[in-house]
């Protein structure tokens, strides 16, 4: 495997009984790339992503994440990836600093490292004033940004974002994407699922899943040319309607 391919997926399949949730998908993601993983609700995005982050066993196929096989080395994968779910998932009854300390600790960072990191993080996000306040009191947009930063705390090779911008206002979404770009510039690969087709335009490459299969894969520009439309929304509609 070349050093540049941080995710390699070949004919990855997941069956639930007779239902094929993910049907032999194949793709590759390069280091530092922002890879958009699109699809309608129920298309199989989340299931596919769960296999890649090691919390769901694939039925068949091959997948290699951050240099480790998902079948045998899930524990090693977990150390090398960050994850942010669509539910906001920090602890509301812990303060900003306590959350950072807790998640830093879970990923095995040393105490001095955590202190260092949390000071930088709090400053970057402009959270100095609320660093010792309970997270539950923060507005959703701030929580979301904090959640993303926490997912990056241990410098993962890849960060998986499951609909990270659901329910936040456009300005915060914009700021959020700036954070994503910054992470990608530092060499972190970003694997992001989203509903928002305008966000798809921000990705380096996107794949579109329909009924468990990847029906389109390429840069947003290429896809628009391929389907002869001028925005990603139309690409998506054309695919989804068959």
């Amino acid at each position: 495997m070349s050093d540049n391919k941080v995710i390699q997926v070949e004919k990855l399949t997941k069956m639930f009984g007779n239902f094929t949730a993910v049907n032999a998908i194949s793709f590759e993601v390069e280091k530092g790339e922002i890879f958009g993983f699109l699809g309608a609700n129920g298309a199989g995005k989340t299931t596919a992503m769960k296999m890649l982050i090691g919390i769901s066993n694939p039925t068949s196929g091959k997948a290699n994440v951050a240099g480790f096989d998902v079948f045998t080395r899930a524990e090693d994968i977990k150390k090398n990836i960050g994850y942010m779910s669509q539910k906001f998932a920090l602890y509301d009854d812990l303060t900003v600093k306590e959350n950072i300390t807790f998640f830093g600790g879970i990923y095995g960072l040393s105490r001095t490292k955590i202190k260092e990191k949390s000071a930088v993080l709090v400053e970057e996000l402009g959270l100095e004033a609320v660093a010792n306040k309970l997270v539950g009191a923060l507005p959703l947009g701030w929580k979301q940004k904090l959640s993303f930063s926490v997912a990056l705390l241990h410098n993962p090779k890849i960060v998986f974002l499951d609909e990270p911008t659901g329910g936040v206002d456009p300005i915060t979404r914009r700021q959020f994407w700036e954070m994503i770009y910054k992470a990608a510039n530092h060499g972190t690969t970003v694997f992001v699922t989203t509903h928002y087709m305008d966000e798809a335009e921000y990705c380096d490459r996107v794949s579109i899943m329909v009924n468990g299969k990847i029906e389109a894969l390429g840069t947003p520009r290429k896809l628009k040319e391929q389907f002869k439309v001028d925005n990603m929304n139309d690409v998506f509609l054309k695919l989804a309607r068959g």
Binding site: I53, G54, I55, E75, K78, K79, I81, Y83, S85, Q86, K87, F88, A89, L90, Y91, D92, F103, I106, Y107, G108, F160
Partner: peptide
């Protein structure tokens, strides 16, 4: 319920 269990399961713990 809060979704933090998922985060914990994705972590090395």
């Amino acid at each position: 319920e809060l979704g933090t269990m998922e985060i914990l399961l994705v972590s090395p713990i």
